[in-house]
Design a protein around this nucleic acid. Structure first.
Length: 650
RNA sequence: GGGCCCGUAGCUCAGCCAGGAUAGAGCGCCGGCCUCCUAAGCCGGUGGUCGGGGGUUCAAAUCCCCCCGGGCCCGCCA
């Protein structure tokens, strides 16, 4: 372990013992001071020492002793302004670290002392339309979280929940039934990406369905209601007109007229849903194929994004295997089971009153809104089919059981906060206490189009595919400009890596709680965007080392470290293992992103005024080269955690 | 009607959860830097009633209360 990480780890342990707080909390409290002259690391002593001011010096001495024991003696510890400040003597620090590097050490996140099994469920888009920019945020966040946690030493299991049982899949299936040809055949005939084809069929079917239902309402509406309905209908018709454009008109007509000729369209959809849940043919094969076709498209896009899953969990399997029925059965026997509006439900309000409120630990864990009032959670529809929330209860249990997970992280939009909370409360009520307490809803705000949200059922979205393509095109122009005559294959590959990096970074760099209004130019302006900047900085560092050829390890002038810019770069680089570890603990990828940008700024600034290759002194040159290598290795490691490919040339 | 999230420089955001050390970046705008390690870069300048008002504290962008603005959620949809 490098000395900085070692001091931080020791410090966390020591402070946690002395001040009687959790190791993780102490770990988090060790921070870089706001101003450089205070030191390299700081700990807010005053806050704790106020209880016993007498032993301040004793604390410092004891801590110093502990660090010395570990062989780190090039360190200065003092207390100023209530903070314990730590400063490293840079010459010895550099010698120690470069020694590690020469022996093959590379900067990596500090590994957790308590490795856990963690499930990260993310993306889980309905298999009825392509992945759009809203999903891009989910995917980028989820995959980055998974990478971060894995690098921290946890055993991570990535899962995609295939939502094929609900109404949406049934609507898409109805569309294909009206086309009376198989989804894969339609996709092949149209010659577009399979998920885009499914998305179009779904949008046309859904919109046509809504139009038909609206028309029938129009007949029995009063005058006031009528004008509103007419306006609504106009909107649907113009949506249909938009959807018609650019697609084979016979397919369009087949769906629209097909929907129009249904005597009871609502019943048609319900019947597909019901028969699918029961596993009856031909619905069973049809819905599976519709979803499977969309999934083929997902996999293509996800693989471009560098995203992989350990498992694809089909919602229908949970139903067909009897797992959902078992949960419903357990619910029926539970003391919290009630009949609500004539059907089976869980009495969530009573679970809150009787289980959560009296228990401080639960109260903290569930963070109930103040005026929390939700109706009971209905488990089954009157027609016997299940509801999404019910199936998700079963799935939540399944995720823990299947993997032996200590913790399950669900990356799901903030709009689903309430249902997610309901599911956790239901689990608690059913006696799945451990699961309820260790299921985390990692919520993020949605990505909106200017003025409105993206809508799958109206086919109103910007797909991830088109954004990636557009980004690649823009990147290609830049790469060609800078590398005239380069191998076209290499150019294409590089442009793709820049495109993916730009998109992923853009989705992850602002904290998840902020809504993003999607702006193509914002994400794709490679100058303004910061992932290409980081890739560029990495390439720059790499090319210096290449130009240099090799480093003579026996001739390094360590006194070079005292130069302020180099010292700052050394210290900042060595904060990486800690920063990445903290980002993993806090599940805050944006912190890592910010750190990498700062480091790159520092490096580029130094680069401009302090040449490596042309330094006449071999000792200084070798020192700088090692420093460049350290920075490059940090950037490479950090970028990989964010799913951004570090480039050697661009 | 109730609840949750967001409001910091012209724009995009960090800092808030765990109150303290002179509020930070990027973009934009203005002015400079490529016979020299990749100018997707660097240097300098410009720019802030931290949405508003109270309160707690030795200390508030940060904690509490009220208000304003924007988004989301309160289904036998997902």
């Amino acid at each position: 372990m490098d000395p900085v990480s070692l001091v931080i780890s020791e410090g966390a342990e020591y402070f946690s013992e002395v001040f009687n707080l959790g190791v993780e909390e102490a770990f988090r409290l060790i921070q870089p001071p706001p101003r450089e002259e205070y030191g390299d690391l700081s700990f807010p002593l005053l806050r704790f020492l106020r209880r016993s001011p007498a032993n301040q010096q004793a604390v410092v001495e004891a801590f110093r002793g502990r660090i010395w024991e570990k062989g780190i003696k090039f360190i200065d510890i003092e207390v100023t302004g209530g903070f314990l400040n730590i400063r490293f003597e840079e010459t010895a620090l550099a010698k120690y670290v470069f020694g590690l590097m020469i022996n093959g050490w590379k900067p990596e996140p500090i590994r957790s002392r308590e490795p856990r099994i963690v499930v990260v469920e993310h993306t889980s888009a309905n298999p009825v339309h392509p992945l759009h920019m809203g999903h891009a945020r989910n995917t980028s966040l989820g995959d980055t979280l998974a990478r971060l946690l894995a690098a921290r030493g946890h055993r991570v299991n990535r899962r995609f929940y295939v939502d094929d049982v609900g109404r949406q899949a049934a609507v898409a299936a109805l569309g294909f039934r009206l086309l009376s040809s198989r989804p894969k055949e339609v996709a092949a005939r149209v010659g577009r990406k399979p998920d885009h084809v499914v998305g179009w069929v779904y949008a046309v079917t859904h919109t046509a369905l809504d139009a038909v239902i609206l028309k029938s309402k129009l007949g029995e509406a009063g005058d006031d209601e009528r004008t509103m309905l007419v306006r609504e209908l106009d909107k649907l018709l113009s949506t249909l007109a938009r959807l018609k454009e650019g697609w084979p008109s016979d397919l369009y007509e087949a769906i629209v007229s097909g929907v129009g000729s249904l005597t009871d369209p609502e019943a048609e959809v319900s019947s597909i849903m019901k028969r699918y849940e029961e596993g009856l043919e031909p619905e069973r094969s049809l819905v599976r194929e519709v979803a499977g076709t969309a999934l083929d498209g997902f996999r293509e896009t996800l693989s471009r994004m560098g995203v992989d899953f350990d498992a694809w969990d089909w919602e229908s399997d949970l139903v067909w295997s009897g797992l959902v029925a078992k949960v419903i059965e357990e619910a029926r026997r539970s003391p919290y089971h009630i009949i609500y509006k004539g059907t089976s439900a869980l009495d969530i309000p009573r679970i809150v009153e009787e289980l959560v409120k009296p228990n401080p630990e639960y109260r903290a864990a569930f963070k109930l809104p103040r005026g929390f009032e939700v109706p009971p959670l209905v488990l089954v529809r009157s027609d016997g089919t299940t509801l999404y929330t019910t199936r998700d209860i079963a799935y939540s249990i399944y995720k823990f059981r299947e993997t032996g997970a200590d913790r399950v992280v669900n990356v799901i939009g903030a709009d689903q906060r309430l249902p997610q909370l309901q599911i956790r409360l239901a689990l608690l009520g059913l006696g799945y206490t451990r699961e309820a307490l260790n299921m985390i809803h990692y919520d993020y705000e949605i990505v909106r189009l200017p003025g409105r949200a993206m809508s799958g059922r109206r086919g109103e979205y910007v797909t991830l595919d088109e954004v990636l393509d557009e980004a690649r095109q823009r990147a290609r122009v830049e790469v060609e400009k800078r590398n005239p005559g380069a191998d076209p294959g290499w150019i294409e590959e590089t442009a793709e890596k820049i495109a993916v990096g730009a998109v992923r970074f853009a989705m992850v760099q602002t904290s998840a709680s902020k809504p993003i209004v999607f702006n193509v130019d914002k994400v794709l302006d490679l100058k303004e965007n910061t992932a290409p900047y980081l890739q560029y900085t990495h390439a720059r560092a790499h090319s210096i080392l290449e130009k240099l050829g090799g480093i003579d390890y026996h001739n390094i002038d360590y006194t070079s470290a005292s130069h302020p810019d180099r010292r700052r770069l050394l210290i900042t680089s060595l904060r990486y293992p800690y920063t990445a570890a903290k980002a993993a603990d806090d599940m805050a990828p944006e912190d890592l992103a910010t750190y990498l940008l700062r480091l790159a700024d520092m490096f580029n600034s130094w680069y401009q005024k302090d040449s490596v290759v042309r330094d006449p002194s071999p000792g200084a040159r070798n020192f700088k080269a090692m420093l460049v290598r350290l920075v490059r290795d940090v950037l490479a490691s950090g970028l990989r955690l964010l799913g951004v490919e570090p480039l050697k040339r661009m």
